[in-house]
Nucleic acid binder design. Structure first.
Ligand code: FES
Ligand code: FES
Lengths: 162, 162
DNA sequence: ATATTAAGGATAACAAATATCCCTATTTTT
DNA sequence: AAAAATAGGGATATTTGTTATCCTTAATAT
């Protein structure tokens, strides 16, 4: 069970978009080049962010993406779920219903206890991702990344932002 | 991102094995029939449990599986990891290394902050599963499952336990 | 001896993730 | 008005992982 690589892409793209000045947009082309990713396929991830309402887009030259909310209002969970989907990692196929000892018409009221426990673990994962905001990431990155690299990256983005 | 269906199978099989009297064994055939699962493929899941040391096996007629530990000493995490593997759900492909602004020989010391946060969420998921013991499940099931069905199921298993 | 079992290798069928290509509508630039 | 660049999305390969079956081998009980 491995998350799509698009999750890593989307999170890093949002981190870049968070540094974009008000009202400017950054294109798929620039984001793909910056991260060394296949432009066409990255585009699908960005479309997912767009459909989830996390980013705004404009068309034409100087078009592209910008965040739809402030980084402090955008959680990891929203970004991850936008590209990975909102379904649970544990899927119950109700194998308990195959128990040969069950009465023919018998039907359970509640979900299986096994599934409920697995879903609680899923919820713990979601809770953790919900507790981290994009602004938290930005803060960590701005401390960890050497300031000259940070500056050059900002400049690189600004050159290409429409 | 969806867990293997074998996870559901393994958890239910362990729940059945937990009800087995001391020193008795239950075969793949019986476990597959009880849960309505493909015998040969379920066998792979049970082999995973065996390789992880969670169950004991014996060969020959009246052979099969029994738990290697008391249900109170067996966690959900152990069972899930036995069949699903121990790798993280988030894989970092280090796309930050593709940043065109980086100095040629530059190499990061620490894992990317994005990955660290995603791994913390993984850890929260694991923590939850580690906190639930097989004995906890047994307790819930014995309360929820109608006692006559419970009795018939026990009898069904005992008839086939070697 | 015979029957039954777990273990494991080989392989096929199927589904999902990854990736590319191409077309359309929109918008900016020229 | 024309041209260029963009997001969006449909179609379609390619690759990988999951699901499933088959078969052989070694061990064990009857
Ligand atoms: S029947 Fe699906 S988890 Fe129990
Ligand atoms: S480079 Fe992989 S998560 Fe940041």
């Amino acid at each position: 069970m491995i998350l799509k690589s698009q999750v890593e892409w989307a999170l890093h793209c949002c981190a870049i978009l968070a540094g974009l000045p008000e009202g400017r947009y950054l294109s798929t082309k620039a984001l793909a080049e910056f991260h060394g990713l296949p432009k066409e396929y990255l585009s699908k991830a960005l479309q997912s962010l767009s459909q989830a309402g996390l980013v705004h887009t404009t068309l034409g030259p100087s078009g592209g993406y910008r965040l739809a909310k402030a980084p402090a209002e955008l959680t990891f969970l929203e970004i991850v779920e936008a590209v990975e989907g909102r379904s649970r990692t544990f899927v119950c196929t109700n194998i308990r219903a195959n128990n040969p000892c069950r009465a023919p018409g018998y039907c359970e009221e509640t979900p299986c206890a096994v599934a409920r426990i697995m879903w609680e673990a899923d919820e713990a994962w979601r809770d953790k991702l919900r507790s981290v905001r994009l602004s938290d990431l930005i803060e960590i990155l701005s401390q960890e990344i050497p300031s000259d690299l940070l500056k050059r990256s900002f400049a690189w983005v600004l050159e290409r932002a429409g």
